[in-house]
Design a binder for these strands. Structure first.
Lengths: 341, 341
DNA sequence: CTGAAAGCGCTAACAC
DNA sequence: GTGTTAGCGCTTTCAG
């Protein structure tokens, strides 16, 4: 304290060695003080703490996690930060309040550009070191035997193997399609989700089942792929509307696709819902903001995120993996109506 | 390949040593192959790559970043994952598409519970090791001399020192209050933002200036603190409505507070906007979903996030820090009307 | 072309 | 009570 510290903040990080030097003790002693290990003289402890405060030292998460087993951070691994993942994140974050875990979210395929395999990559890169447990959002692949407890949200595999939280995709899709049918639509298009995802398969299956139950023949030309993303949904919606006999209603596999379909249709001069009815899936915040408001299938994303956190926390505490299925229900807003003719 | 690998996936991470052993080469060689360093025989390289694929090896982000200078990861540091931060994150994430950076978001005060100082803590814990640059959302404190380039969004300090992206808080708040005044309100409450934030101060100042310009005396009882959070806004709104002479309109410092004020008022049997007009600030997706839709001041959060990323990328490329100010504009929805009497 | 050795910042045994 | 040592997984000189 009287000794002017040699290393001042400014350039580079303040490391534990800077603290040790300034306090005139060994690195190990500083470590013990910081981590509250006992067997340190009060005077020493006070002095070290003083230097820590003065230098503004914080231990590096990276270095700490290399050495320790636990980091007390749980990771949410996503492909990119789109609304679906963000809502989940929100629920996960609030479920973690009051626990002693911090939360970190990692978007693994932003730079990679590739869609496939990011889950394994992210899990390998972060698991076992940076994070104590992981929540993976919409994995494409079966989860690898992972070094850390993992729960998958909306998984490819369906509820087998590792812990999962998913939605009643089949029932929701059926409800969406039945709603359209009950309005009187017979020519109903479907903008499919991402090819490799189980949820996309189930939502299409629900669509088909509802059609079949109503005695409406399935027409493959009425199904295009939006891959759950806005960019891919533009051509998907365009293709549907370009059909010689275009659909009077569209069930989109998620809200992002549905909102894009509305945009495309509106740009072509179609009125929603008079000329085209659109139903989405998810009920993201943007759904109610679209105009007209989007009729959709609600899955409570924050609740799913919170459920995933609770599951993970249990597993971290030694419990067995479980499977949780959340309900999906129709929310009526303004984007659906009876067909014109 | 003919040699049966000893260590199989399963338990623990696959490390570079497992790969080295299975491929019959040294750890150093594996590292070179993975990082594309030259001076490796094609045959060796191919063999190593084969083992890597077979074992599903990915280098640990943590270990790599300890040794290397760059990680190609940029960090978004937030207090918690609430809607404001999430929207920013969304913009940041999409602005990063196509670059070779990945993005990681860290919520630093989830476990800490403490509100203050998380920025410095997070920055110290991640900067210099895990991330190449940081975007900090709403810092309480002046940024420390940081080891990595940093841009602050909605900073305490206002546009001085480090790079910042902020909103025209003063102008927006004035516009919100003027709107209420132009409707005929004279008794206008304000739910203030978090005490230590510059944005909260500026929004209150805008409120006061608008009042003064209209010749309406400032009444301190009409200002309560919601701290930008739902939980704190409940008592703040309640206190306002409990006043002997309650306000006929409220300008809340952010949408979360405004929405909570609407909830509290509605629960008391007040009708919005007939009995109470409410204006928010931010225009988060939830604003349009509230009923009635929330009249608010829009700041485009995704655009701010994207601007922050561009700034940071420039700085990583050697540019000087800059200050960007985004516009804030009034969005009329259903939560405001003329006062009754 | 390949491997041995050092070291990033930190913690955990084990000495002193 | 405190310091020394080893080592987490990886990259990087520098020898061979």
């Amino acid at each position: 304290m009287t000794d002017t510290p040699v290393a001042r903040v400014g350039v580079g990080r303040v490391t534990i060695r800077d603290v040790a030097r300034a306090a005139g003790v060994s690195v190990a002693t500083v470590s013990k003080v910081i981590n509250g290990r006992d067997g340190i003289a009060d005077a020493t402890s006070a002095r070290v703490l003083g230097v820590v405060a003065e230098l503004g030292y914080e231990s590096s998460l990276v270095a700490t996690s290399m050495r320790r087993r636990r980091t007390n951070v749980i990771g949410v691994l996503v492909a990119e930060f789109e609304p679906f993942a963000l809502q989940l994140l929100r629920g996960a974050s609030s479920a973690l309040q009051g626990t002693d875990y911090d939360i970190l979210a990692y978007a693994g395929s932003v730079s990679a550009g590739e869609h496939t395999g990011w889950e394994r990559r992210s899990l390998s890169r972060l698991g076992g070191t940076l994070i104590d447990g992981a929540i993976i959002v919409t994995p494409t692949v079966a989860l690898p035997e992972s070094s850390v407890p993992t729960v998958a949200v909306d998984p490819h595999t369906g509820p087998t193997g590792p812990a999962t939280v998913d939605t009643d995709n089949l029932g929701g899709a059926r409800a969406a399609t039945e709603h359209l049918i009950s309005l009187g639509h017979r020519r109903i298009g479907h903008i499919r989700g991402r090819g490799d995802l189980e949820s996309a398969r189930l939502r299409e299956q629900g669509y088909r089942e509802a059609l079949a139950a109503a005695g409406i023949p399935f027409d493959p030309r009425l199904v295009t792929v939006g891959a759950y993303r806005t960019a891919e949904s533009t051509p998907a919606a365009t293709a549907l509307l370009d059909l010689a006999e275009p659909p009077t209603a569209v069930f989109a596999a998620n809200d992002l696709s549905a909102i894009e379909a509305i945009r495309v249709a509106t740009a072509r001069g179609l009125r929603i819902p008079q000329d085209l009815s659109v139903v989405g899936f998810d009920d993201i915040p943007e759904a109610v903001a679209s105009s007209p408001g989007l009729t959709t299938i609600r899955q409570s994303l924050p609740e799913m995120g919170a459920a995933a956190v609770r599951l993970l926390l249990d597993m971290l505490g030694g419990s067995q993996p479980e499977h949780i299925r959340m309900p999906a229900e129709l929310v009526l807003r303004g984007s659906t109506a009876r067909p014109k003719e």
